[in-house]
Nucleic acid binder design. Structure first.
Lengths: 227, 227
DNA sequence: CGGCGGCTTGATCGGTCTCAAGTACGGTGG
DNA sequence: CCACCGTACTTGAGACCGATCAAGCCGCCG
């Protein structure tokens, strides 16, 4: 298992990734999760790369993950952020169509793809659940497309509302990702993201006590921007 | 069956939609297709609307279909074009998350969603095939996202290469959709699309004998733009 | 205290949008 | 057959938003 771990992490950061005692995995009731073992990924370490065989799927326990593609000229588009509770790595068939990296120190459950498929063959409900997860991914990507045709303010408002919904803390949001990550998710530059944060702060729509902590002060205004 | 047909087409264009003799449907060997009946939709008629219950799925026989969402301010984003051979209407679970319209006079096979699901429950291969189709949709949408972060020339080049691959005719492409449809797919205005066609024509990368007919004259140049 | 990474701010540039005409094409009726 | 119309498409001029290039700032850690 340790050698398999190495495969997933490319050629660097091995020392930062440890398989955890498998006993921790058994305290969950989801039959899919019980197939997996917990693992730790260091900040900015690769979980898998685009085009690699999809040997595993993953569920985030803590931390955060970004999946992305790189264009030939170096532009990076982040496809999605995965937060605790999210499952990722199902987007392709035999191989991953995106790369995945840990945004911060991240704990995930790693589940063998073949084991999941075998389970799905035996249990109709598992098969249905997996298909439903892919459909939800599809719908999220369709929403993401809508983001990309909006103005900078609208994109950031939509992003903040999404994060406030998906992270605990109500109106106070602790973003796990950098401005660059946000920019690459929203299809903007880091400068435009920064300026737009400032504009929303000046309009008293949000507060930015520290760069990673955002307080939503005026949700109606954000919803209006959400178009 | 005729009354069900009416439900799908909103309040207009009923006269243009006819169920065809069901015998035509039986000449296919795909078990999913055999569940369906052929239908005809007039140009610009609605096939289904966002939020409606997903009672049916569809396979294009001839013509073309656009699926889209409308933002509150009226902007329209086309999610995908469906050409002969494509199956659509699987994107949601119980309800459609996009609207669908015929771009031109379009013949489709209409298949009851419940019948497909029942078949999937009985036949593992059907279940797997349906899931794989959803994954392919997901991958196409991810590619679509990449389009939206490119320049106008890059977007149009990618679009033309995609259409040349999906439509018969090699380097001569007969587009079924209008400039407005292309604009709403690429996240541009109609004027920018038109100007970009002209630029590519001036650069001898394409020829535009009529507005809907495009001849790819220099594929390497298009591939270079494809980034 | 110095240095570095992440973030913000400023000035300018450029690509796309907007608004406004003008043109080509297909269909309809005389 | 032609005159007319409406729709789709193209072209032009100018405005605007976000990108780019370039400093500066802040917090953190050695």
């Amino acid at each position: 298992m340790l050698t398999q771990t190495a495969i997933h992490n490319g050629s660097f950061n091995h020392s930062s990734i440890r398989v955890m005692p498998s006993t921790c995995a058994k305290q969950h009731d989801d039959p899919i999760e019980m197939l997996g073992a917990p693992m730790l990924f260091a900040r900015n370490s690769e979980i898998y790369g685009e085009g690699e065989p999809a040997e595993y799927i993953y569920k985030v326990l803590s931390g955060a993950v970004r999946t992305y593609k790189i264009l030939s000229d170096g532009r990076r588009q982040i496809g999605s952020f995965h937060l605790p509770g999210d499952i990722f790595g199902l987007e392709g068939g035999d191989e991953h169509t995106l790369s995945a990296e840990a945004i911060a120190e991240t704990k995930v459950i790693v589940i063998k793809h073949s084991a999941v498929m075998a389970l799905a063959d035996r249990d109709k409900n598992v098969a249905r659940e997996l298909w439903a997860m892919t459909r939800r991914d599809l719908q999220r990507v369709q929403e993401h497309i809508l983001l990309l045709i909006k103005t900078a303010q609208e994109r950031l408002a939509s992003f903040l509302l999404e994060m406030a919904n998906r992270l605990p803390g109500g109106n106070a949001v602790d973003l796990p990702m950098s401005r660059q990550d946000i920019a690459d998710y929203l299809g903007l530059t880091i400068e435009t993201v920064s300026r737009t944060f400032t504009q929303l702060e000046n309009a008293a729509t949000i507060e930015v006590p520290t760069s990673r902590r955002i307080v939503l002060r005026n949700r109606p205004a954000l919803n209006r921007l959400n178009a």
